[in-house]
């Protein structure tokens, strides 16, 4: 179990999140993929923290956790607003400014 192994895992998780972000059409699907990406970033923080010692890695991860939770809450509120406006939560519905 080396540091590079954990970093590779984090990269794989991140790329999986990117795949989901690009593929999903529902807002919840996109939020799930963003969660995966944020989780991958946390794994990177914690891995470096564990490898180097000290509290910085976990500290960053704690703040990142708090911020991600806040972002999810706001994202879901926006999704509910989207649902109230269009009746469905597909993101390509919010395209009324296109001509």
């Amino acid at each position: 179990m080396t540091l590079s192994a954990t970093l590779l895992l984090a990269s794989a998780l991140f790329c999986t999140g990117i795949y989901g972000l690009l593929t999903r059409r529902q807002t919840v699907g996109i939020l799930l993929s963003v969660e995966l990406m944020a989780n991958a970033a946390n794994v990177v923080f914690v891995s470096f923290g564990a490898a180097r010692g000290g509290t910085s890695g976990q500290l960053f991860a704690v703040f990142s956790l708090a911020i991600t939770v806040a972002e999810v809450a706001v994202g879901l509120a926006l999704m509910i607003l989207l649902y109230k406006s269009f009746g469905d939560t597909r993101v390509d519905l919010a395209s009324e400014m296109k001509q």
């Binding site: 590079s4 192994a5 923290g49 564990a50 490898a51 890695g57």
Partner: peptide
């Protein structure tokens, strides 16, 4: 980057709280 993943001294909850 090929160091063992738990090379450093772990941070106890107390140290984290203090930080």
């Amino acid at each position: 980057l090929d160091v063992p993943a738990t090379n450093g001294v772990g941070a106890s909850p107390e140290a984290l709280g203090r930080a």
